[in-house]
């Protein structure tokens, strides 16, 4: 993780603030910073999203390509996550420095989308054993200002929600070889069914309390955090503990309960915002990086 050096005095100040339910930037323990999100901003991708939360800046681009299904799962397509912690975010990511964090984030994403309850890979199949869609989700971390997991989770969901897969008009087997015809109209696309896609919530334990959406400074004060992914139907699709500290059983269950409440609410807000953005249609002005 990016290094900011804090003195013990500063750490105690943050800790006392959290104890009093009044954090450095005026938020309460269970409050997120305001987020800015924009989708469909990259013309070369099939779906994209950019998320800004505090100083954290995430860009997600989605590419869809044709592939051959795995031999043991002939009826399923493929979904893969790649995370790039580039050195532009912080010098600590230089060389192989960001690799561990990148593996960690892509593992959490893979785990979150693994269950069929969240993402049904069967919808990506075109011809069993022969052809399927492969979705590449590429996450780029442009700036790192704390709470990477939640930001990446939201950005990925928004990008998948905006993804348009070209419509296939005919898929036939011609002498054992697959033959695929695409629709002539480039606007004729299929949207993914995003109704039950997960989002990721991090609960960061600082002192005796736990908070959501920590800033970089607050992350420095924490010894352990729980990263969980929440489906809109109330199920939890992955949980993992991060950090070098341990937690008590009671604290763990309390953190899960708090995460559940926050996750459901955040999911709903995100879907409302994306729907609102979608109503502007194709004539919407794209802000991109000029803002």
């Amino acid at each position: 993780m990016a290094e900011t050096v804090l003195s013990s005095g500063e750490k105690i100040f943050i800790l006392h603030g959290i104890d009093a339910d009044f954090r450095n930037d005026g938020r309460r323990r269970c409050e997120y910073r305001s987020m800015e999100i924009e989708t469909k901003l990259m013309p070369q991708t099939h779906g994209s999203a950019r998320l800004h939360i505090g100083n954290t800046d995430i860009l997600v681009g989605i590419k869809v390509e044709l592939d051959v299904p795995h031999a043991d799962k002939p009826n399923e397509g493929k979904l893969e996550f790649f995370v790039d912690c580039s050195a532009t975010a912080t010098p600590a990511f230089e060389g192989k420095g960001g690799d561990d964090l990148a593996t960690e984030i892509s593992n959490v994403l893979t785990a979150a989308y693994q269950t069929r309850n969240a993402f049904d890979l069967k919808t990506l199949c075109i011809l069993p054993h022969k052809k399927c869609w492969k979705i590449y989700v590429d996450v780029l971390i442009l700036q790192c200002g704390g709470n990477l997991f939640d930001a990446v989770g939201i950005a990925v969901k928004a990008a998948l929600n905006s993804t348009e897969i070209p419509k296939i008009t005919a898929a036939t087997l011609d002498g054992g070889e697959p033959d695929i015809e695409l629709s002539d109209d480039s606007y004729d696309c299929i949207q993914l069914d995003t109704s039950n896609y997960p989002i990721i919530i991090t609960l960061c334990k600082i002192g005796d309390n736990y908070i959501v959406d920590p800033t970089l400074e607050e992350e420095m004060c924490s010894t352990s955090s729980i990263v969980m992914s929440m489906l809109p139907n109330g199920k939890i699709s992955s949980v993992v503990k991060l950090g070098y500290g341990s937690i008590q059983f009671n604290t763990f269950t309390k953190m899960l309960q708090m995460g559940e409440i926050i996750g459901l609410r955040l999911n709903k807000t995100l879907m409302d915002v994306l729907k609102e953005e979608n109503q502007f249609g194709r004539q919407r002005r794209i802000f991109g990086f000029l803002k």
């Binding site: 969240a118 489906l231 109330g234 199920k235 939890i236 699709s237 341990s246 937690i247 309960q257």
Partner: peptide, 13 residues
């Protein structure tokens, strides 16, 4: 103390 949890699937709280 719990030192690590690793959950995968789709389970309620």
């Amino acid at each position: 103390q719990i030192s690590e949890v690793f959950l995968i699937g789709s389970i309620d709280t």
